[in-house]
Amino acid sequence: MADLDLVTPATSDEAVAALRTLPPEETAILAGGTDLLFDLEEGRLSARHLLSLRRLPWRTLDWNGPTLTIGSTLPLRTLELDPEVRTRLPGLLEGVRAVGSVALRHRATLGGNLGRSAPASDLVPVLLALDAEVELLGPTGTRTLSVDRFVQGSRRTARGPSELIRAVRIPEARPSAYVLQRVRPFHDISHMAIAVSFSPSDRRWRVAVAGFPPRPILLPEAATFLGGEHPDAPAVLRAAQEITERAPIVADRRASEEYRRQLVRPLLERAVRAATGGGG
């Protein structure tokens, strides 16, 4: 295998400048590398240049009132050990803990997970349910996109060729949960997953489903069936029926469509119970 050329900028300006000089179709962005190296191993990485983000001062976690801003290269493990994340964004904590193993999360990053945008990402559904935004840094400055607009499909995003994911912003602390079905309890990929959150500012639920291609999706109609802060059993059942009957759930090599649709109700019940303080 031909070797790659490695660029390791130390500042945001250097990173953007370096990216402008590299041919986009031959350049891969390296954050934690836990997904990218998989492609390298399988011979699927066609890049000739590697732009490593490891020296950038982006491993940050900042609470500003209710808002959390997470630097894109912060290791997921650091995020999960933040005591405020544990109490104020429990759904985010559960999404992070679902990614790989502890050792993997010492390297894996939120920016990398978003940038790679795998259909079974555990973090994209949580970020969707939390109305998170992505801050992109490019030659003309920064722009901000909702995660819903940023993630376009299986391994497709709205990141421009000369842009880098700088940070992810979660607008407010929320009751939230992430539950998933997988074969093994640790370190496995989901067959089906549901993320929920309840916004204290607009008093509405968000529901996202994930685990199947092409990408995790928000289901606003189902969320309206949940109603107010403490949905009763019939409300959860109606929301689950809406998802089971209408969500664009499909089969892939990990699970059949029928199995996934059957998982909707128990997963949604667990998610709402966990988010409303009843335990998962």
Binding site: T34, L37, F38, E41, H187
Partner: peptide
């Protein structure tokens, strides 16, 4: 496994458990 699934290659990098199969030496 060489793909981050088995943990056999775990080492400490700056004191933190790390999968050496998913870490470029240069990183």
């Amino acid at each position: 496994c060489r793909t981050g699934g088995c943990g056999a290659c775990t080492v400490l990098v700056d004191g933190r458990s790390t999968l050496s199969c998913l870490t470029l030496a240069q990183e």
